[in-house]
Amino acid sequence: MQPDANASPFGPNYVPVAPGGRAPGGKYPWATHFGTPNVQTYAARFGMWLFLSTEVLLFAGLFVSYAVYRYLYPQTFALCSRHLDLSLGTINTLVLITSSLTVALAIHFVRTGKNGMATGMLIVTLLCACAFLVIKYFEYHHKFEQGTLPGRFYTYSGIQTEGAPMFFALYFLTTGLHALHVVVGMSVLTWVTYHVVKGRFSPVYYTPVELGGLYWHLVDLVWIFLYPLLYLI
């Protein structure tokens, strides 16, 4: 019994498609090499968690470098940390946490069939992301002006101890890689928003919204650790 293209064994809400195929009007595109749509959702979610695990390990390498150099240069790191703008860092933390809330709410609204509310929440998330990047830009700009830059670009005369350029190298690497993830997350959420507006998602089928949300939460997670480690030594 091969799945028939016209009739799905799971009811009219589940449309059999080829891998990666789409279904109209918020129906579930069931890729028929999966046993059931349930298995498909499970596979997608599990795949995303595995991907998040690779992201965590990607950042872990930087956190390990940070740990080593903080152990070697504890006083300098404390000194340099106090040279960062704590209020901007704190505001950015609050902004990202709020965006995490709105993206969780967006998934909630898609699942309860309120696509309009979901769209609104996703737009708020994207605005938060923009705000985060703008604030980050001001922080970076300040450092470029002062010369608190990594490695051989370090020209700041205020702190001249060994290890200060290393702190700023790690600062730029961690926040830079994180900002890159913010940009990627924004692209993903923009794509998701577009398809929410187009009505592709519904309480029956919301997997991409959920996966996009998971990615965004990861961006938040990384920042939750970066904030105390960089700003609050």
Partner: peptide, 22 residues
């Protein structure tokens, strides 16, 4: 494992191009 080597390759690239000195 592979994400870590990805990061290492990125760090090396940064070392080569910008001389961060990590």
């Amino acid at each position: 494992g592979t994400p870590v080597i990805g990061l290492v390759m990125l760090l090396l690239t940064v070392e080569q191009v910008f001389g961060f000195g990590i």
